[in-house]
């Protein structure tokens, strides 16, 4: 079977730390190259996965002396790319991801939000976002509607 007909399915793993997200995105984006996504599509994938991984590094492993592995599984399906992100960091508060409401920007300069955009961007750009704590592992799954044939 020709290579381009095989749906992509791969796993990328990185150790937590200050440069973890950059390393993971580097690996991920080069593994996605054979799919020849549009620039807009690969930009969306990079942004969504960056925000999801930033959350793992910042909130899952708040102690910089604590190390862990983050696994990112990617599979190409008929309705887009499905991602599963697994880590053994702290669970999400209340056992679920934030709603991801858009922060209000129609405010005075001093009150402009400097954060709170991460989950908004994930929820805005990804579909079927779901989170589960399985044993001592966080499992975040989501789908991004890109690379549709």
């Amino acid at each position: 079977m020709p290579y381009h007909n095989q749906p992509a399915r791969f796993e990328v793993s990185v150790e937590t730390g200050a440069m973890a997200v950059r390393h993971a995105l580097d690996k991920l984006m080069s593994r996605l190259e054979p799919l020849k996504l549009e620039i807009e599509e690969s930009g969306t994938v990079e942004l969504v996965i960056a925000e999801a991984l930033n959350n793992v590094v910042e909130h899952g492993y708040p102690d910089p002396n604590e190390y862990g592995l983050i696994h990112i599984l990617c599979s190409q399906e008929h309705n887009g790319l499905r991602f599963e992100i697994k880590d053994k960091g702290r669970p999400m508060p209340n056992g679920q991801p934030p709603f991801g409401f858009a922060p209000d920007v129609t405010v005075a300069l001093d009150d402009l939000p400097e954060g709170g955009f991460g989950w908004f961007l994930i929820k805005d750009l990804a579909r079927d976002v779901s989170y589960e704590r399985q044993g001592n592992e966080n499992h975040l799954t989501l789908r991004i509607s890109v690379g549709l044939s």
Binding site: L47, N54, E114
Partner: peptide
Amino acid sequence: QFIDSSGLGAIVASMKYMGA
């Protein structure tokens, strides 16, 4: 080529620091 929500927040903070 790439900016995430933390980068966006840093640009907003820079504007706030400059003042109205």
